[in-house]
């Protein structure tokens, strides 16, 4: 089987299993608070690492200045509680304009 298809199916099956936990285990099992906390913080750590490497690196090198600058603008918009759509469009537009101006 195609490895990408296998990846999608494994991810889908695992995710559905997580989602079924509530309806199936309801009232029977309670995750220890420490485990829940660790899972939550772990997910945040992964997302931040992903966005940091995604913003700064391309392959194994530096991505250039336009991309991190756009991401930074998106971050500032998000920090000021701008709507989600504005964050996305703002980041992309800033990067596109910088590239248009010749910034790598």
């Amino acid at each position: 089987m195609n490895a990408t298809l296998a990846c999608v199916l494994v991810l889908a099956a695992g995710t559905y299993a997580f989602r079924l936990a509530g309806p199936v285990l309801h009232g029977r099992v309670h995750l220890p608070a420490r485990v829940q906390e660790l899972l939550t913080v772990g997910a945040t750590v992964l997302l931040v690492a992903l966005l940091a490497t995604g913003a700064l690196t391309e392959g194994q090198g530096f991505a250039g200045w336009s991309r991190p600058a756009g991401v930074l603008l998106g971050g500032i918009l998000a920090w000021r509680r701008a709507p989600f759509a504005l964050v996305v469009v703002g980041a992309a537009t800033a990067t596109a304009l910088l590239r248009l101006a010749g910034v790598p």
């Binding site: 945040t44 997302l47 992903l50 966005l51 991505a63 336009s66 998106g74 980041a91 800033a94």
Partner: peptide
């Protein structure tokens, strides 16, 4: 890349994690 979509992906993640941070 011309449209800056490569910056959109990290920005989306940033917006998602900001409340938790």
């Amino acid at each position: 890349d011309r449209f800056g979509l490569d910056a959109a992906f990290p920005a989306v993640l940033l917006a998602l994690v900001l409340p938790a941070l």
